Simulated assay, not measured.
Amino acid sequence: MRSVTIRLFTSVTSSSPVYYMNYALISALVAFALAQSIKVFITWYREHRWDPKRLIGSGGMPSSHSATVTALAVAVGLHDGLGGSSFATALILAIIVMYDATGVRLHAGRQAEVLNQIVYELPAEHPLAERMPLHELLGHTPPQVIAGGLLGMMTSTIIYLISHSSNNA
């Protein structure tokens, strides 16, 4: 059986390890972290309260799913070019995730709102009256998805410019 070595931070072409940054992965993770952090500050601005649950929760402005997949697609496009199968794969993934966020997930959240209202109005002796409410903030409105996409594009472009300016210096 052949042994396979996975190198995440070293160059495969050089005899001595040359450390580099996985630009696409870093861009996607930073875009996700930024989007989730922005949600905390938007909640504080709108509702005058800190909600650390927004760091890990879904839904809201901007879409962290959209930011993540857009950052990944743009990073792959900038790094590997637009003509390769890697970019095509990342782009199709981004389109599917963003379409799903404004379609299925948005409507599932709206259905959860209606179901929670129905359960809330049930008499106390009803077996469903004691159920935990369904999570309502699942999907995104189109402006939330667009904002996430723009955040992802800016994040990966800035990281690309920073990483390539330090390589050329």
Rank of each mutant, 00 (worst) to 15 (best):
Y19S: 07
L55A: 08
H164A: 01
T141K: 15
R131A: 04
Y120D: 15
G81A: 10
P142N: 11
S11P: 00
I38T: 08
A28G: 07
I159T: 01
S156V: 03
I42D: 05
I95Y: 10
S58T: 15
I26N: 02
M153W: 11
S16L: 11
M1K: 12
G152P: 06
A35I: 04
L78H: 08
M98N: 14
A94M: 12
V40A: 06
L34H: 03
S156Q: 04
S58R: 01
R131G: 00
L128A: 13
F41K: 01
V40Q: 09
W44C: 03
S165F: 12
L25G: 06
L161K: 08
L161I: 11
I162S: 07
I95Q: 06
I96L: 15
L122K: 08
L138A: 07
T155F: 09
A124P: 00
G148D: 05
K53T: 10
L106C: 05
T5H: 11
G57F: 00
M154W: 14
S16W: 00
A35M: 04
M21Q: 04
G152R: 02
G59T: 03
F41N: 03
L91H: 00
S63L: 05
Q111V: 11
G57Q: 13
K53F: 05
L106H: 13
R49E: 15
A147S: 14
A94Q: 04
M61L: 12
A24V: 11
M154R: 00
Q36D: 06
V114E: 14
P143I: 01
